[in-house]
Computed example of a mutant assay.
Amino acid sequence: MKLQQKSQEENVTEWVEFVLLGFCDVPHLRWFLFGVFLLIYMVILLGNGIIILLTKVDSTLHIPMYFFLANFSSLEICYVSVILPRMLMNLGTQQRAISLFACASQMFCFLTFGATECFLLAAMAYDRYVAICNPLHYPVIMNHKVCSQLVAACWISGVPVQMGQTLQIFSLPFCGSNQINHFCCDIPPVLRLACGEIFVNEMMVYLAAVVLVSVPFVLILTSYIKIISTVCKLPSATSRAKAFSTCSSHLTVVMLFFGSAMVTYLRPNSTHSAGTDKVLALFYTILTPMFNPMIYTLRNKDVTTALGRLLGK
């Protein structure tokens, strides 16, 4: 292990390299997990790639709803690519060491893409709100310029906050154990290795989580309360069913992603455990991106019809 020795007066050894333990507690499942995660990665790339392709080549999908969906699929590919390749490398080679810089870079990208996903899901909820509650003004309100600005804001809004959060976490001294009991450089397991008083850092994490997770979730909740109120007033049962079907896929993804993220970042620090954190992290980093293409294609007639036309060609 590489160590950086501080002055003799302080008598503290500070690590400049971490070890991602990942799933080393189940060595007999090493190659099984490698195969499962490799298959999941291929499914994520293929599923989200197909959605991106369909929204580009099929003219019937050239509307705001699918513009947001294409960006969401692109985001999912970026999101899992920060985590899964290194996880696969660690499982395959058993070389689990990761430098402080690489760990900080992974955390920054992971948190930034996570924040982007929160805001993008909120933008998609707003799009559904306008489409259902203000259908006559929808083409004017959700024009291409507005959609592009919303997407751009979603991609860049989390960058300064997550840059600051990553810098303040990695400015802490890390001493004692250098073993991160996780498969990626997430905030809770990294903070456990920090020396000294970290109360302020924990409060900053909670504040960032409230802003970047809770605020978009409240916006989504508000949009769907208004959507449900409007749909319930529709005279035709067919119209109500159609309106609900256009929102059900998005609402399912919201519940999967926000549910696991909120439990991870907003619950008290005393209730954190390595095993629980890893299981929850699997939901919002790997399983949700894998299910998203299935949810959006199987429950969306426009996408399945476009896929049929593409396969027919």
Rank of each mutant, 00 (worst) to 15 (best):
C103A: 15
I51Q: 13
I228K: 08
L69Y: 03
C175V: 11
N300A: 04
K2V: 03
F119D: 07
K226P: 08
G35A: 13
Q179E: 15
L69G: 02
P160E: 14
P27T: 01
L150A: 10
C247N: 03
L310H: 08
T297V: 11
A281Y: 02
I295V: 05
L310R: 13
A274S: 14
I132R: 03
E14Q: 14
I83E: 04
Q162E: 04
L91P: 00
R96W: 10
Q165T: 11
L193P: 01
L251M: 14
L256F: 09
F119I: 05
L45H: 07
C232K: 06
I50M: 10
S81E: 03
T276Y: 00
C185K: 02
T246R: 10
I98M: 15
C24L: 11
Y296S: 02
Q149C: 12
E14G: 05
V211Q: 12
C232P: 10
F108G: 11
A243W: 00
I132Y: 06
P64R: 01
Q95C: 04
E197G: 06
D58Q: 04
G158P: 01
D127G: 06
T305M: 07
L307E: 00
P235E: 13
M42D: 10
G22H: 00
I98L: 11
P289T: 11
F174H: 05
G164Q: 10
C184L: 03
V210F: 15
V263M: 14
C103M: 12
V263N: 04
L21P: 05
R128W: 03
L311D: 03
R267T: 06
T112G: 04
A306F: 01
Y265H: 13
L84F: 03
A70Q: 05
I198A: 02
Q106H: 06
T55D: 03
R96S: 12
L298T: 14
L256E: 08
Q179V: 12
S239Q: 11
L266M: 09
S105V: 08
M255Y: 02
A209F: 08
L69D: 03
P268A: 02
I228H: 02
S273T: 00
Y129R: 05
L111A: 14
A274D: 09
N134E: 09
D25S: 15
G176A: 04
S177A: 13
M124V: 02
C103I: 09
L207P: 14
V36G: 05
T285K: 11
W31F: 15
L251I: 09
C24M: 05
Y126D: 11
L61S: 12
K301R: 14
T304A: 12
P188A: 00
G259L: 11
S148V: 06
G114E: 05
S73F: 09
W155A: 14
F32S: 06
V205C: 09
F23Q: 00
A115Q: 05
D277K: 00
C103E: 04
N48C: 08
K145W: 15
M87P: 13
F258P: 12
T285S: 14
F291Y: 04
M255I: 12
Y79G: 02
F32A: 08
N71P: 00
M204G: 09
L91H: 04
A97I: 01
L54Y: 11
F108W: 07
S248K: 10
H182M: 02
V140T: 04
F183A: 08
Y206N: 13
I52A: 08
T238R: 14
S273N: 01
T297G: 14
